[in-house]
């Protein structure tokens, strides 16, 4: 009874996806769309399996993940410091805040040719793009969270005898952490986007470059296989993030 209920729910939650997959397979198998444009789903999955089996998939994934991770780590460090200081100091706020609000909406991909000029076509230029893309949302949400700490909390912790260091450690930093998490929520997909886009434009290895390469050779099943890989990476990243946030912010009922 419970199993059948669970199956029914799983089906209700995914029947449209199953339908899309079946339709894809049927349309391609019937030859309604040429194979160069839409190969059968089963052919794509076979190709994906072959890429996993012969190990040709592991290297581009590792390269892209490393680039994204380093760029994101840099932007977390720099963004948190900038955001925190700008929330606590008027002078820093005066300098940093206008730059953040100007930089935030700009399309950073336009900077790729500059990074290639400065840092070459390999990892450094990709890391630079990830950094510059992610640092703005992180700094802005850390700044917002650290300056939104209720004054009452600060006053009461001071009047209860907390030193300035204690106030930072026990009140301000936890508040900033929840800001960092909401900044990361925005920054994580952007990091993936920046990594892949920089690789597609500049080459130099990674999943994005591999995808462009297979498109130039008109290896359509490989193109679709890489799209599935990117999709899977996006989903895994999102799930990992949700777990991390749950663990770090279990005290915060708003999250």
């Amino acid at each position: 009874m419970r199993l059948s209920e669970r199956l029914r729910r799983a089906f209700a939650a995914s029947y449209s996806l199953i339908l899309v997959c079946l339709l894809w397979e049927a349309v391609a198998a019937a030859g309604l769309i040429r194979e160069v444009f839409l190969p059968r789903l089963s052919v794509v999955l076979e190709q994906l399996y072959a890429m996993i089996a012969d190990g040709s998939l592991a290297e581009p994934i590792a390269v892209s993940v490393a680039r994204g991770a380093v760029g994101l780590a840099l932007s977390v460090v720099v963004g948190s410091i900038l955001g925190f200081l700008s929330a606590r100091s008027r002078t820093v706020h005066l300098i940093v805040s206008p730059l953040l609000s100007i930089g935030q909406p700009l399309p950073k991909v336009a900077l790729i040719p500059i990074f290639i000029l400065w840092l070459g076509v390999y990892s450094s230029s990709k890391i630079a793009l990830v950094f510059i893309t992610c640092v703005f949302p992180i700094a802005i949400s850390v700044q917002a969270a650290a300056s939104a700490v209720p004054k009452v909390l600060l006053w009461s912790s001071r009047s209860l005898g907390a030193s300035e260091f204690d106030v930072i450690r026990t009140v301000l930093l936890p508040a900033s952490l929840s800001g960092l998490m909401s900044g990361l929520r925005v920054a994580l997909p952007l990091a993936l986007l920046a990594t892949f886009t920089a690789e597609m434009i500049g080459g130099g290895g990674g999943v994005g470059a591999a995808l462009m390469y297979s498109q130039r050779l008109f290896e359509t099943p490989t193109v679709y296989a890489y799209l599935l890989v990117m999709l899977a990476m996006g989903i895994v990243l999102d799930q990992l993030f949700l777990r991390l946030r749950h663990r770090l912010l279990s005290w915060d009922e708003q999250k």
């Binding site: 986007l193 597609m200 498109q215 193109v223 799209l227 999709l231």
Partner: peptide, 10 residues
């Protein structure tokens, strides 16, 4: 979850 620029080659 998929970065949208990845659709460009497709």
């Amino acid at each position: 979850a998929i970065p949208k620029s990845s659709f460009i080659p497709l």
